[in-house]
């Protein structure tokens, strides 16, 4: 239970897809002019991540990992499959899953909300090549998420993280629509700056829940400074003694 909570919180805030690893920026920047559209795209991303990450987890566990094919042992004349490593296929398998799912989402959205379908435009099919989606699956693979439940959790929560990011920036962009932004910065320029500033806000979670691997960054430098200073002072004291 606690690991679920931890992973959930961590993938929404600490490892936020946009502010921590800067993935999925193209649609994040392009579709964030209106909150309603942003919500639509964000929901689509949550949905696609929630489906593809667990699916790819299954593929990874039972097909791609070294030794994953152990279940097929003995079925074909006792040939050993367990020694095989199909890891080189992960990219193409993952992308195929994602593309299929996106196609499905597109059909559903077009059927049930044509207006959202029109406002999302090209960016809906482009979710298929959205790096946040493929990134979700690849992070799932490289972080060696252990159970199916955790994989579902990871997909949903990193989707929610991305959703929150695009929701916040869409609201901000709606708010600053009438601001007197300097002409060269209007549009994308100011959006990049806002994203950076939002990143500062999200830094509040940086280093949280890392399980003590990278310990508190701040005491260390001070400790070093102290050390250096004490060493300097000692040296100085010795030098003055010598001079005397």
């Amino acid at each position: 239970m606690i690991e679920h909570l931890e992973l959930f919180f961590k993938s929404i805030f600490v490892d936020n897809m946009v502010f921590a690893v800067f993935l999925g920026m193209c649609s994040y920047l392009a579709v964030s002019k209106k909150v309603a559209t942003a919500v639509g795209l964000g929901a689509a991303v949550i949905f696609v991540l929630a489906i593809t990450v667990p699916l790819n987890w299954l593929l990874d566990q039972y097909l791609l990992q070294p030794g994953a094919l152990a279940w097929a042992d003995g079925s074909a004349n006792g040939e050993g499959f367990s020694g095989m490593d199909l890891g080189f296929l992960s990219f193409i398998m993952f992308i195929a899953t994602i593309a299929t799912m996106v196609q499905l989402v597109e059909i559903v959205v077009e059927k049930f909300s044509p207006s959202l379908y029109n406002s999302l435009g090209i960016f809906l099919p482009l979710i298929a090549v959205n790096c946040a989606i493929l990134g979700g699956s690849l992070f799932m693979q490289s972080r060696e998420i252990e159970t199916f439940g955790l994989a579902v959790n990871y997909g949903v929560s990193s989707g929610i993280g991305w959703f929150l990011a695009i929701l916040a920036i869409a609201a901000i962009r709606e708010k600053i629509r009438y601001s007197n932004v300097p002409a060269p910065l209007r549009g994308l320029g100011i959006t990049f700056i806002i994203t950076g500033l939002m990143g500062i806000g999200f830094l509040s979670f940086g280093g949280m829940l890392t399980g003590g691997e990278d310990e508190t960054p701040s005491p260390e430098p001070t400790a070093q400074v102290e050390k250096i200073q004490t060493e300097d002072a000692k040296e100085l004291a010795e030098n003055t003694k010598i001079a005397e």
Partner: peptide, 29 residues
Amino acid sequence: MIRVFNPAYPEGVMLAILLMNVFAPTIDH
């Protein structure tokens, strides 16, 4: 929460306000 869980930043209120500044337009919306 930041004070407690993030030993690197004992001063949580600064970052909490910055983060909520980011989300204030969303709340308003």
